[in-house]
């Protein structure tokens, strides 16, 4: 079995509420795997557990051949598993370029350097510009990040994840809060990322999911009720009843 990300019986409860209720899933390298599910299904919690920002109650996660169940978020990033945030999380006071260059810096040499200005490290900036070019933000590089439009911030969020050098991206609703045009830019962007990265995509927008995903899983009340290719999942009667809001 050669899945890049392998999840076994993952669990998380808040009191009596089982937010993650025994999820098992394998994501092979190169796949774009979408997770859909109604609000409050536990999608963000699941991403928190995979990225290491939240401890699981039980279960196991293997990534790239290693057991990462007990690793911190920092250690998981260093192994190539990066995430983006549903609620935009950027350094508002930094320039767009510096946001991305900081992520490059995290994996290029020691950051215990005190005497040379980071902003003029051309190697960091060059790699950061590449990531910005990939998300079509190169022309915004010297803007203060907090002044970007919402859609541009969502693009920056992805550029930062890319700049960590990750093999796999966990994207938590990258389209959250975007309008139609902004969304189209991001969907196009993810279509390009598919060719270079394994991706787990949490998304509400059904059109986007069915257009992009190799496989789709449906999460309802902490359980995966279906996993398969988009057409099969769309046709699944349990999914239609539980999620797509249609009569079975």
């Amino acid at each position: 079995m050669s899945a890049l990300l392998s999840i076994r019986d993952l669990r998380k409860s808040y009191g009596a509420l089982k937010v993650t209720d025994g999820i098992s899933l394998d994501v092979p390298a190169g796949e774009l795997h979408a997770i859909i599910g109604p609000n409050g299904a536990g999608k963000t919690t699941f991403i928190h557990q995979l990225s290491g920002s939240l401890k699981s109650d039980s279960g196991a996660v293997h990534f790239d051949g290693a057991d990462i169940t007990r690793l911190s978020m920092v250690a998981r990033v260093k192994r190539g598993l990066a995430r983006s945030f549903q609620i935009t999380s950027i350094l508002d006071g930094f320039s767009v370029l510096e946001n991305v260059a900081t992520a490059v810096q995290a994996r290029s040499g020691s950051s215990f350097r005190f005497l040379t200005p980071a902003a003029s490290e051309t190697a960091l900036n060059a790699e950061a510009m590449e990531a910005l070019a990939r998300v079509n933000l190169a022309d915004r590089a010297h803007r203060q990040a907090g002044t970007l439009s919402h859609g541009e911030k969502r693009q920056l969020e992805i550029a930062i994840a890319l700049a960590t050098g990750a093999k796999m991206l966990l994207l938590d609703e990258p389209l959250a809060g975007t309008g139609h045009e902004e969304g189209a830019i991001l969907i196009d962007l993810m279509r390009q990322l598919k060719s270079t990265h394994t991706i787990m995509l949490i998304e509400h927008d059904m059109e986007a999911v069915f257009a992009l995903a190799d496989r789709v899983s449906v999460l309802v009340y902490g359980k995966l009720i279906a996993t398969g290719d988009p057409a099969a999942v769309r046709a699944d009667p349990a999914v239609r009843a539980a999620y797509l809001g249609e009569d079975a």
Binding site: V74, F85, L91, D92, F94, T102, A103, L115, A118, I160
Partner: peptide
């Protein structure tokens, strides 16, 4: 000089958004 360096950048980033810095691979403690 120090606050403009690599070290200073990590410090400033951690001040502004600790979780973001962890999510790109910086452990703030050190």
């Amino acid at each position: 000089t120090v606050v403009a360096s690599r070290f200073g950048r990590v410090l400033r980033g951690t001040r502004d958004n600790r979780v973001r810095m962890q999510a790109i691979g910086f452990a703030p403690f050190g």
